[in-house]
Amino acid sequence: MNVRSLAVVATVVSAAFVGCTKTEPPLSDSEVKAVFEKTLPSTVEDRIWERVPLHPAKLLLQDMVEPRLTQGSTSFVRVQSVTDGQKIAFRLSWSDSTLDDLPGPGRFGDAVALQMPAATTADVPAPQMGEQERPVEITYWSAIFQAVANGRKDDIHAIYPRAKVDHYPFEAASLKPGSAAQQEMAKRYAPARSLENPMAGPRTNPVQDLLAEGPGTIRPAEKSLSNGGGKYSQGGWSVLLVRPLPNGAQPGGRTQVAFAVWEGSHQEVGSRKMRTAWIPLSLGSAK
């Protein structure tokens, strides 16, 4: 990175922290440094982040597989990381002039994801979602999920306040609200929920654990182990993602991590995203 781009990064970084903290974290230009702490931070505002090295990860267009993103949007995601030897926490922040957390036809939410190789080996699978039999683990956060987790009702009126609905069959007077029969009936009219599609909610966790073995292969992980939360303020998102250390990753060791950011107002969804290549990740250990 040359002097000019470093200056740009520094400006981006400082802009992000104006009003949030008085102390700017140190920069880690070449890798993400996961600092060892006995207790992981539980929010993006935790003061611990003031001293955790910050890696400004340059985002690239996903222009490898169709559908591609052909016009760039988010330039950088600022990455900080802390590990307690069992789990690893990431604080990801990026500039975004619009808060997009409403789903709808032609409308998409802001989102971010981190990706790590499922197995910590000397060579990593392809950065574009891994490859066959060499899976990657993806931790995905969405502003739409966050709004629901924050209490937005599971109801069309939460999105269209003036919507007029005549009748839902599963809200018939003959069905006691909340009864097993009523809930069973409601499921019949929400096929994705009947099939327990994790996209379909209802949800309390804004984070999904996913696996992928190449573009187009993303699927839910067997267990949901990650959590986190995001906040929008001052023209940007800050998102905390906490997940277990991947298989084979040890404190004091090294692995790789990659990131992706979706700008909802730019119609970014799925493979239409800004993403990084693999970035080295060093895991701190107790001294």
Binding site: P103, G104, G106, D154, I156, A190, P191, A192, N197, M199
Partner: peptide, 11 residues
């Protein structure tokens, strides 16, 4: 094809 806002899938 139509996007279902409540289930987050298309139908």
């Amino acid at each position: 094809t139509f996007y279902n806002t409540m289930t987050g899938t298309s139908e």
